[in-house]
C-alpha cells in the first residue's frame, strides 16, 4: 500500500527540491444528486479544508453538478499498489460460483 497524491502517486517521496510553499493538494468528491454516492472528480490546491470546499465549488460545480462536496487531503489517501494487483484480487479469480450464471436453471422455471 502506498500514500496517495492526486489519484495515487507513481512514486513516493517529494517530487522536487526547493522550498515548499505550495498549498496542499486535496482530492475532491462530488455527490451530483441525492441518491447517488460521492464520486471523485479531481484535485485542487487549498491552504485548509474550508478553502478547499470553496475552491471545489468554483472549480467543479459551476453548472449545478453538485449537491454535496467532500475534500480529502491527497496525502491521507492510502491506495493499493498496481504491482500487487495480481495477488490482491487473485482470490476472486477462481470463484465463478459467486456469479448467478454459474448455475443452470431449466427454461421452464421462471422468475429466477
Amino acid at each position: 500500500m502506498s500514500q496517495s497524491r492526486s489519484e495515487g502517486p507513481r512514486s513516493e517521496g517529494p517530487r522536487s527540491e526547493g522550498p515548499r510553499t505550495e498549498w496542499p493538494l486535496w482530492e475532491v468528491f462530488v455527490r451530483s444528486r441525492q441518491g447517488l454516492s460521492h464520486k471523485h472528480v479531481g484535485s485542487l490546491h487549498a491552504p485548509d479544508a474550508e478553502m478547499a470546499i470553496q475552491n471545489a465549488r468554483d472549480v467543479y460545480t459551476r453548472r449545478q453538478e453538485g449537491q454535496s462536496i467532500w475534500v480529502v487531503p491527497s496525502a491521507e489517501i492510502v491506495a493499493s499498489s498496481p504491482d500487487d494487483k495480481g495477488e490482491l484480487f487473485d482470490p476472486a479469480n477462481d470463484k465463478v460460483y459467486r456469479h448467478p450464471t454459474f448455475y443452470s436453471v431449466p427454461d421452464a422455471v421462471e422468475n429466477m
Partner: peptide
C-alpha cells in the same frame, strides 16, 4: 470556465508527479 479548464488540466498533470509550482 477557462480558469476551471486550466485547473482540471493542472490536476491531471499532477497525477504524473509534475509539481504545480
Amino acid at each position: 470556465d477557462e480558469a476551471g479548464h486550466g485547473l482540471y488540466l493542472y490536476s491531471a498533470a499532477e497525477t504524473l508527479d509534475a509539481s504545480r509550482d
